[in-house]
């Protein structure tokens, strides 16, 4: 029974000490501690939010970057294509020009060759004519050196002429 009978002295001291403990700890410990913890939690939350925002911005930037990259790449491709086309065009044009020039040169050459050839033929013709006349002169001179010969010749010629 004594075990469950409260004693005045202990109740008295416990009440005083416990109430004082609540008051003093509240003032000197709990308030500063809880305030500090809360402040820390707030700052951590803010930091986390800031990090989250930064991450979002980063993502945005990355997306932008990617977009720019894509655009740049597309532009590059376009430029390259244009350049290639221009090159091809230039080469084709050059080739065409070269061909026509070559053809022109060949044509001119052919024309001049033809002219030369004609001149040569004409000259040859003249030379052959002169030569033939000379040969004919010589032959005539020889053939007509005797009467017999003249006669036979005439007869031959006549024969031939008749045949014609």
């Amino acid at each position: 029974m004594e075990l469950i009978t409260p004693s005045i002295g202990l109740v008295f001291w416990t009440t005083i000490v416990f109430v004082l403990l609540i008051i003093l700890l509240t003032k000197f410990a709990w308030k500063p501690i809880l305030a500090a913890i809360k402040e820390r939690e707030n700052s951590i939350e803010q930091a986390l939010n800031a990090a989250e925002n930064a991450k979002k911005e980063m993502q945005q930037l990355q997306a932008d970057n990617e977009k720019f990259m894509r655009e740049a790449r597309a532009e590059r491709d376009l430029l390259l294509k244009e350049a290639r086309d221009a090159k091809d065009a230039m080469i084709a044009e050059a080739k065409g020009k070269a061909n026509s020039e070559a053809e022109k040169i060949i044509k001119q050459a052919r024309e001049s060759i033809n002219l030369e050839k004609l001149a040569a033929i004409n000259e040859l013709k003249t030379s052959v004519g002169i030569l033939a006349v000379e040969i004919a002169e010589k032959i005539i001179n020889q053939q007509l050196s005797s009467d017999d010969k003249q006669k036979s010749l005439v007869s031959n010629l006549l024969q031939e002429a008749n045949l014609n």
Binding site: S7, I8, T14, L21, F28
Partner: peptide, 25 residues
């Protein structure tokens, strides 16, 4: 209203609590 063994033990406990929490604060 003597400072009995239990009161003394409480005072010791309270002293320890003060030491801990004032340090922490």
């Amino acid at each position: 209203i003597s400072i009995t063994q239990h009161v003394a033990s409480m005072l010791l406990g309270v002293f320890i609590i003060f030491c801990i929490f004032l340090t922490v604060a």
